[in-house]
Amino acid sequence: MTDKLAIETKDLTKNYGKVTVVDRLNFHVKENEVFGLLGPNGAGKTTTILMLLGLTEPASGMVRVFDFNSTREPLKVKRIVGYLPEEVGFYDNLTARENLRFIADLNNIAPSETERRIDEVLEMVGLTEERDMVTRKFSRGMKQRLGIADVFIKQPKLVILDEPTSGLDPSGINHLLDIIAGLPKMGITVLLSSHQLYQVQRVCQSVGILSKGKMVIEGSIDELGREAMAGGRFMIEVETAEPKAGLVDIIKKIEGVEKIEADGTILKISTDSDLRSQISKAVVDNDALLVQMKVHEFSLDDIYMKYFKEN
């Protein structure tokens, strides 16, 4: 993995009327990584992607794709970026092959090379049998797969997939995720937009979580994991009726307790595992009256769910 950036945004902002849909977004995607753009519906993922491709103009801020300014040099960006829109459509009077041929034609690919690539990408998504069928007869899932094939026709350096797993059955999802996971090795960077955390977690090296147009958290999955670990994988909150002086010291001695903070009647204890029974025993042994005890698990899920709930 290099440190060259495939995508870089600076205070990227988009308004629709008075509503700010994307709000001073700053994030970057490194070359040859799979970046997951996560967020509930309406978070602004698609809008961000449209700005990356120069398909809509930002209100302010800047976005660069492989050092090209997407707003000012959209063509240079489009030459190297393959984009799968949220609702992909095809010319339904044409066959799968003819649809791909048109896209190849738009990308100035030589005819002989075109045919070779078409066979290759159709094979990749498992549509070889259906290549001469008019796309009118395609199911939603088949269209989605043809959309994936379409993205690879121009041999992009970056692919942007907007909710690519919608409309696919579980085996289709797995197949797609396998394809995506293999792309960095082929020198292709991926921006994967999704509201499905588990799919993203499976294939992404980095994620950014978007909520109401703001980037809530961004970084590599390793970093984010460590960050969560540093604060303790578990956060246990203990509330006692009257805190006793020695209690803090006793709890500190329990194996696995990393940190303890006293805040009035509440003790915030960071641990590396679920130590609720040991802690409650210590509290009772110390004759402190236990009011309540809560366990709080830190993970990407939590962060994500928190913003999910708000929406």
């Binding site: 489009k78 992909v88 095809f90 010319y91 990308n107």
Partner: peptide
């Protein structure tokens, strides 16, 4: 038909 996005994401 959903083809406009695909068309305009090509270098044209």
């Amino acid at each position: 038909g959903g083809t406009l996005s695909r068309l305009l994401s090509q270098p044209v």
